[in-house]
Write a protein that binds this DNA or RNA. Sequence first.
RNA 1: AGCUUUUCCUGCACCC
Length: 422
Amino acid sequence: LQTHNHLLDVLVKSGDLSSTEGVLQAMLEEGCVPNLVTFNILVRGYTKAGDLQQATLLFHGLKKYGLEPDVWMLNFMLQGFFKQGKVADALKLFQEVDENLPDIFSFNIVVNGLCRSGKAGQAWEVVETMKARGLAPDTVTYNTLISSLYKANRMSDARRIFQEMSEAGVQPDVLTCNILVSGACKDGNMDEAYRIVDAMEQQGLSPNSVTYNTLIDGLCKAGRVVEACQVASWLSTQKDNAVRPNVVTYNTLVDGLCKSRMLVDALTLVADMPAQKVLPDSVTYTALINGLCRGGELKSALKLLLGTLEKGYIPDAVTYISLVDGLCKGGETEGADQLVSEMEERGHDTGSVVLSCLVSGYCRSGNLVRAAEVLSKSVRARRCVPSWVSCDLVLQSMQKARMWDEASELLSQLVEVGYEPP
RNA sequence: AGCUUUUCCUGCACCC
């Protein structure tokens, strides 16, 4: 049984759900009765793949095997719902189950899910519930809450909760400190960020690469790119692999250099990556492509993408979008159109982001007919719901150009998909 | 009993 469970876990972790059915069959044929762990592994697999229907079926189908869902399965389901943005489903399940079932993990998942979907108020209610049930918020709970407050720019609230955490005797860990560092950076307080890193070292909470990457990103965003590079080169003198520069470190610097218009340095840095045994990934390429486009080097950006394709690299949607946007902004709307077709051929979703790039590109170049065409084509194909902002843009541009008939025709199409004119 | 679950860092349009 353990062997089979382990096998299933490996399959699920490698994303190979289709093979799990065979393993399950084999188990049954061998007279090996699946237990809760078996089903938990499967449910986790389905939730990770976004197939919540299948997961729900398993969840409710357990009774056939004389089993009841346990906390583990509840937690997988909750996490799955939240990851898919199905907050209501998650909450429904959470309220349905026996009051004694949820554990600290369940609560932390719910708190995190609510925070991430912008429902901070409800998250706090859940924290109160957990306290009422005798479960004290732990380090993970506080890390979640503090991080979400910082992300919402609620700096003083974040500091207050950190204070509360200390008063409650809950020990901060490295993650807590990393969150505090990123908060200080976001607040523009780099001195404080440095102080926290120093304090970590003194308290035996060794900063890791996330800590330093956060600091480096903060420096870049504060316009202190040179200093950021200095921190990174100091890191590369370290023996400890836990702090040596990794791909995120490089990506952070590449983006920082690009945004500070230090394109040559960015390109040099990327060229040096393989020698440092760190390989560029799609984030690296996207940052560079954006930098090149903003610097008016459309040709080089396009070349870069083609070069990665030749190396067998498969660009992700964000990389494509960046180039599409760059081409649009540079007036190369035909090239952008072509690239979008290529994205489609490669099976990428060309969603509302691509659409708004194209639409604003065409509006900018005065080709309103084409802008409306692209917009209505994708609405009719129900490919995606366009962002209302780009709808406003086209309609307003059309009105300015006195294209009343075209505007009203487009408007009626957009209204059907839920658009409300301003 | 054991095996499976939660929180931290980097890239994209429009809006701000």
